[in-house]
Design a protein around this nucleic acid. Structure first.
Lengths: 349, 349
DNA sequence: ATGAAAGCGCTAACAT
DNA sequence: ATGTTAGCGCTTTCAT
């Protein structure tokens, strides 16, 4: 592939002039510029981004690490981030850590090696983005959706705790006193916050702790299935299930349907977050919605601001932005059933 | 950040030795290697991927361009691709063209400039990956899900035409003779194939053309909404709607629900492809499922093979792999209604 | 086993 | 306005 030197040779110009002509720098005569462009075109010249990046110490690439490519919460966030950053000339180098801290660290290390200009990251343990910070202290980093214990990076999160509490309050207002929560991996900041919200609300509303079981597991549909089966078996008096993730609620709903438990007639179900398909689930799901668009925008803005900071001197303090969401009431929640579930259900028959 | 030179200086060794020690090359004494590693560790050395890539003309980055980050079909495909490629040491540079040919071209150009080692691409017009081919003739390219008119690149697609035909056959077998199809952007290879399958099946099953309207639009929920409203108004005798995309069917379902049309009682609905949430939609959706996992794997394999081809000489002919799917019958399709829809529905009251 | 040196393609500083 | 030159940090001959 043709390079600057080829063009210089072909036009008889110097390397520098050609470079300036092509990069739109001033102090190049219009005639020369045209000539260079013409030859570049003819030779099929393509600037070598690697060489440029190496020379300028700037790649115009942002690293993005998310835990799950099949969860619309993260992919939508990625889409928004991508849109904003692309408009500023940045590309996205994408990694997926599958909620595994080991993978996560490797991914971050790899991004640093690639010399990305900044990192957006959904950490999967309290150690969070430490690797990135240590390896490259000046690198702009924003944690998205989840926070680690690190307080030296920017972060954008939702008010998970309040969200959980609102779900419980809504359920309680409908008359439920026995509410089960199915949550994701213990240890994740989101799980911790959502569980905290759940427990706080239960306490405040004077629900008995043993009436409100809380099951932590994974962020996927299979866990939702498992968990709801356990609830049916071990806590047959529960009248409402709050599944604190869209993937979990998928399993919950499917298994309930399969078990012949009607929603919300025999069991109320609430989700968390608000992917498009919640609107047409059977039945449409009550949930707590976070302002995804704003959150993605904010993450991009924080990154962009850091990117604009020339040196350590003008670096501002880390910012942790938390967004409130809102309760969306749909058809999956209603007053508790009056009759107990048939025995066959609990036994899995 | 520390570099090889720093380590060389610190250890008193030569640049080359340090490089070899760190890259695990042979012919370095164990003692030296350990010493170098120790110093590298102490200095917080991180290899500069840019410099390496520049020197070796190999980035270990694969470019991925998809049309829509919020469509699980593509993000799941991306996830699979990412998984396979990561295991071979490749990273993913992600772009989203939003089904806009202009953006698409820019994205491809940008990937070439970044000197990615290969490209996986869902084209959005017949020109497809031409830009990439022209700019960098030897670059491995695989078109995923959609094919362009280019026959010099590998491609992995589903048998969309047969899928469409199977959906229609299923509907006809249930007794439907008036079936509407709502499809995506005209011009996309997927739309063309899906519509062709629809029309072919209608012909074969002797359904009258004017009883089976076909509406092309976009791949999103809003278009599904629009289209189904039009169908209700202009073709009130239609008893089944085939929405050839998961995003379209979302709008169709939601709008039918809102209009008070029961599914499948008053209207059968079929989708296309099989995101997880189809299982718990209200009602669970009949659809044509493509083997996503296999398709993603295949795309990765094709890329990996090309990556392994040393020179133009051993390059093999382009391969177009097409995968068959299977009909998944769920609860959204049933025998046609016997009574006409109430007038109020067609008028949008 | 190690060192020296060339060069990947580019930009930026300096000279003219 | 244009030419020249020195690297960016690395790998890879080629010597030793």
């Amino acid at each position: 592939m043709a390079n600057l030197k080829d063009i210089a040779k072909e036009t008889g110009l110097g390397l520098g002039t050609v470079s300036r002509a092509l990069s739109g720098a001033p102090r190049v005569s219009p005639a020369t510029r045209r000539r260079v462009e013409e030859v570049a075109e003819r030779l099929g010249y393509r600037s070598n981004g690697l060489a440029r990046a190496l020379r300028r110490s700037q790649t115009n690439v942002i690293g993005l690490v998310i835990p799950d490519m099949e969860n619309e919460f993260y992919t939508s966030g990625a889409a928004i981030l991508q849109g904003v950053l692309a408009s500023q000339g940045y590309r996205l180098l994408l990694g997926c850590n599958n909620s595994d801290p080991e993978t996560d660290r490797e991914l971050l290390a790899s991004l640093v090696e690639q010399r990305v200009d900044g990192i957006a990251h959904t950490p999967c343990d309290p150690d969070g983005s430490r690797v990135a910070r240590e390896m490259s202290p000046g690198m702009p980093v924003v944690e998205y959706a989840r926070r680690s214990a690190l307080d030296t990076v920017d972060s954008v999160t939702g008010d998970e705790q309040q969200g959980s509490a609102q779900i419980v309050a809504h359920l309680a207002a409908l008359g439920h006193t026995r509410i089960a929560m199915v949550s994701g991996p213990p240890g994740l900041s989101t799980t911790v916050a959502r569980v905290a919200g759940f427990e706080e609300a239960c306490r405040r509303l004077r629900l008995r702790k043993r009436d409100c079981p809380q099951l932590s597991g994974r962020y996927d549909a299979e866990w939702g299935s498992d968990a709801v089966l356990r609830i049916l078996r071990d806590h047959p008096e529960v009248t409402a299930v709050y599944a604190s993730s869209s993937r979990i609620v998928l399993g919950v709903l499917e298994t309930l349907r399969r078990a012949g438990v009607s929603v919300p007639g025999q069991m109320s179900v609430a989700g968390f977050l608000n992917p498009q398909w919640f609107r047409i689930a059977g039945p449409p799901l009550t949930t707590y919605e976070l302002p995804l668009r704003e959150m993605g925008d904010m993450a991009a803005q924080l990154l962009l601001q850091r990117l604009g900071e020339e040196d350590a001197a003008q670096r501002h303090a880390p910012r942790a932005v938390r967004f409130e969401g809102r309760l969306v009431v749909r058809e999956s929640t209603a007053a508790p059933r009056t009759a107990p579930l048939p025995r066959s259900v609990a036994s899995g028959a």
